[in-house]
Amino acid sequence: MPANRFNGFTEYGVGIGLRIPHYQHIFEKKPVVDWFEIISENYMVDGGRPLQVLDQILDQYRVVQHGVSMYFGSAQPLSREHLKRLKTLVRRTNTPWLSDHLCWGSVDGRYTHDLLPIPYTWEAVKVTAKRIRQVQDYLEIPIVVENVSSYAEYHESEMAEWEFLNEVVEAADCGILLDVNNIYVSSQNHSFDPLTYVNSVPSWRVAQIHIAGHSKYRKYILDTHDHPVIDPVWSLYARAIERCGPTATLLEWDDNIPSFDEVHAEALKANRYLKRATVPNLPPGALNKVREHPLETR
């Protein structure tokens, strides 16, 4: 969505992930960039250089926070301490929305530091939506959940991934960070049509889109963020933009990171689609739709 309540009614254009190898270029050349996405965890510290660098970036650029460890789908209660640290950072960055993944990754106090797939069950819908609401209530900013790449499916699942996503965001009344590369990766790994996924997402909830590259192996695809975006992923992106309108877009590049200019140029290819996009017709009340007690309805 161009601007909606899930992205704080902003129109952010095309951004890239803020990465250490690019610091020097950014500070010396001060390139024009619509916005930077930061990994929250890199700055959830008490002091030192990470915060100094962040403050310098904040002086000149718009920044959006993206997390990797909230684990909305973990079955156990949220960590108060983690939330407190995150809130301190939210106050510093003034991020208009905050994203993290629709996944789990820790249990009994042990962390895998991975984005593990959630079984698509009704129990998981309830647990996940509840945690998203708790985070949203505590941080007091829009929360946006991102679909992850996956390499395995569970016997326990009771619905398709896109159905699970829809149920969770409805129950939590939150936004979506639609990662079209992750949809592509999972579609190849689990043999489904990625267009079915893109077409079934509630477009009025999409606050942001991720694009990225991946690595293809003989029997599966890994989400490595170390290549340019491939054409089939651009096609999914085009379809997503057609459905959602010109949406804040971010290119992820995390390994074998090329020069700043190369990464930025790759990201700006998104403009080919964004420039011709029109704002789609919204379902009535989509911008201010509030569901009462959605968790109790099931």
Binding site: D114, A152, H155, H190, Y220
Partner: peptide, 26 residues
């Protein structure tokens, strides 16, 4: 017992992707 196989990978192989990924990362 909890991972589905697919036409290319067994349940073991699919789980192994995550097992390797965990260790490589840490």
């Amino acid at each position: 017992a909890f991972i589905k196989p697919n036409d290319r990978l067994t349940s073991f192989e699919r789980l192994e992707i995550y097992n390797r990924q965990y260790w490589f990362r840490i």
